[in-house]
Design a protein around this nucleic acid. Structure first.
Ligand SMILES: [Zn+2]
Ligand SMILES: [Zn+2]
Ligand SMILES: [Zn+2]
Ligand SMILES: [Zn+2]
Lengths: 130, 130
DNA sequence: TTAATTATGTTATATTATTACACAGCGTTA
DNA sequence: TAACGCTGTGTAATAATATAACATAATTAA
């Protein structure tokens, strides 16, 4: 709940839309939906998306080129994300698993990389689709 | 070493190219490089890439839309991948960490998802770029 | 109040990936 | 043999995703 007040009009419009969906939305589908609100060009959408990703309000599902709202205010500002993705119905859920987060946070490779972010996507079949 | 002999000409050309690079290659840069070998269209490249991904010879770096050869013959056929990515020089390394793999393999969510695959990408700065 | 930073609006373009169609090769099996 | 299913090929067209470049406005910081 820290910086929401700094969002601009375009950013708010697009965040609202994404938050109303419980599933990821694609940039051009967002564009289509917000044309009635005066947002006319892809770049306007991408700029808002990039900002919202940066401040952790939304996450990008990399394997799907789609954007989903973060429901977890404790999310470490978009720096540590885990998703489960059903390959049949494309349902996406953000996962917050303390033990898993710990393992990932503490991971060290043997090459001296300094990590500041990770993204993990699990794929499979949800209960409905098995 | 199981099914290599079944690769077709296009698949071999493209796998060769990717294996010669220690860094990920993008589809259209591959296309450019293989034109001299008679591969003329994006689709020919994408078809080979998809096949090579499916059989685990290469992996897709989702956050970069790029493809890298798998150096690990024990890789569980493209079903369990971990990469480290330097955000400055874009150096990408595939990670094989037994303990991490175990944690990821054994992960269960609380929704009854049946997982068969995951992809994890770590981002940060490599030793050279710190 | 000036300067720096961030966002906007618009046009054009770059990059990534798929659809659709006609056909070729190969192994199975009837 | 012939018919079939399956996988791959070649080609053209197009869809989907994302950024560059430019001029301007609004917001913040000094
Ligand atoms: Zn989150
Ligand atoms: Zn499902
Ligand atoms: Zn591998
Ligand atoms: Zn680096």
């Amino acid at each position: 709940m820290q910086k929401q007040e700094t969002l601009t009009k375009n950013q708010k419009i697009i965040l609202d839309l994404i938050e109303k969906s419980d599933q990821p939305l694609k940039a051009y589908s967002i564009l289509f939906d917000v044309k009635k609100k005066g947002i006319n060009a892809p770049l306007q959408v991408y700029r808002a998306l990039n900002k919202l990703v940066k401040i952790g309000k939304i996450h990008k599902i990399e394997s799907r080129n789609a954007f989903i709202a973060c429901k977890n205010s404790k999310c470490q500002i978009a720096k540590a994300t885990v998703f489960s993705i059903c390959e049949s119905c494309e349902d996406v859920t953000e996962i917050h698993d303390h033990k898993l987060s710990e393992h990932l946070r503490d991971f060290k490779d043997n090459k001296g990389m300094k990590y500041n972010k990770y993204n993990l996507e699990f794929f499979g079949l949800c209960k409905k689709c098995v």
